[in-house]
């Protein structure tokens, strides 16, 4: 016969969750909105666009799974190769130029020079200007007849002929790059300037005491001090440039011929035909390039953290 009091002697389990589990559940509850937000606004559209790239979906139509057909179609287009090459060229060259200009100006403005505050604000203007205004202005400057650059060249006698900056292959890409650099360098400038201001003055004083030259101070104090920021800036800037549409579209529409065709413009042209499966495939083709950039930057940052 069982002892009716036995159950009372056993440790009693409280109904519901233990304290630790309750804490975990509460923590999950707190992060749930953020997770939902990330899933809803980042993961879902990202995965959905990848899915669409494997379908024959058109605007207003359902779209069936067609495997790699869209990618096969794109790979048969010579323009895809041009877009890949041009995108890489624009990302790399504008990145290097923006770094050089941004770093140079940040180093200058970081000194105690007259009008420093005004200069800092002034140099941010290209970044503050709406992109379409900036690039339409550049388009006007590049006009063969009546454009600012040709007027300067012809009026000053530097070059007597009119140059069709955007209309010929040798000058089209450099012209697009120049406009992109002008619009984008302030971001590098302000990021590097902020990093420069976090480097303690003591380090420079110590380097001077040790007899370091200006170059050695730059190389051993400044560069390590801004390295982290430069990597993050390079990553962000590269992704933005690779995805940027307006600079090429407003200046050349990807032409002349395919001289300035880039992935976003190609995807846009795909959208114009309402074949969103193909347009999504163009975007997906870009992903490995961007993924390599992200992995590279993350690895560099991780290496810095591990030191």
């Amino acid at each position: 016969m069982t002892d009716p009091t036995a159950s009372a002697d056993r440790p009693r389990r409280r109904p519901g969750l233990t304290g630790e589990r309750r804490l975990s559940a509460f923590a999950l509850l707190l992060v749930a909105p953020a997770v939902l937000l990330v899933v809803g606004l980042v993961a879902y559209p990202f995965l959905f666009s990848i899915w669409i790239s494997f379908t024959d979906r058109v605007i207003g139509g359902g779209g069936a799974f067609i495997g790699f057909d869209n990618f096969r179609y794109l790979s048969g287009q010579a323009i895809l190769g041009s877009a890949a090459r041009n995108t890489i060229v624009i990302v790399v060259v504008t990145g290097i130029l923006k770094l050089a200009i941004g770093l140079g100006l940040a180093l200058v403005v970081n000194q105690h020079i007259p009008g420093r505050g005004f200069l800092r604000a002034f140099l941010m203007l290209p970044w503050a200007m709406p992109a379409f205004v900036a690039f339409l202005t550049w388009r006007v400057l590049y006009q063969p007849i009546g454009g600012g650059f040709n007027l300067i060249l012809t009026q000053t006698g530097l070059y007597p002929q009119v140059i069709d900056w955007l209309g010929q292959r040798p000058t089209a890409m450099p012209s697009v790059i120049a406009a992109s650099v002008w619009r984008g360098f302030p971001f590098w400038f302000v990021s590097i300037l902020a990093a420069l201001q976090t480097i303690p003055r003591d380090l420079y004083e110590a380097a001077k005491v040790d007899g370091a030259t200006r170059w050695q101070q730059f190389w051993t104090v400044t560069v390590p001090g801004i390295r982290h920021v430069v990597i993050v800036t390079a990553l962000l800037s590269s992704i933005w440039t690779a995805n940027a549409f307006e600079h090429v579209w407003l200046l050349t529409q990807g032409g002349p011929s395919d001289a300035t065709m880039v992935f976003p413009v190609l995807a846009y042209l795909g959208m114009q035909t309402q074949r969103i499966g193909e347009a999504a495939a163009v975007s997906v083709v870009m992903l490995p390039v961007l993924a390599i950039l992200v992995i590279l930057a993350t690895a560099l940052l991780q290496r810095d953290d591990d030191r």
Binding site: R139, V162, D164, L166, G167, Q168, L250, T252, P256
Partner: peptide, 8 residues
């Protein structure tokens, strides 16, 4: 006219 290959 010059530029007609990239006209908008």
């Amino acid at each position: 006219p010059p530029g007609n290959a990239t006209w908008d």
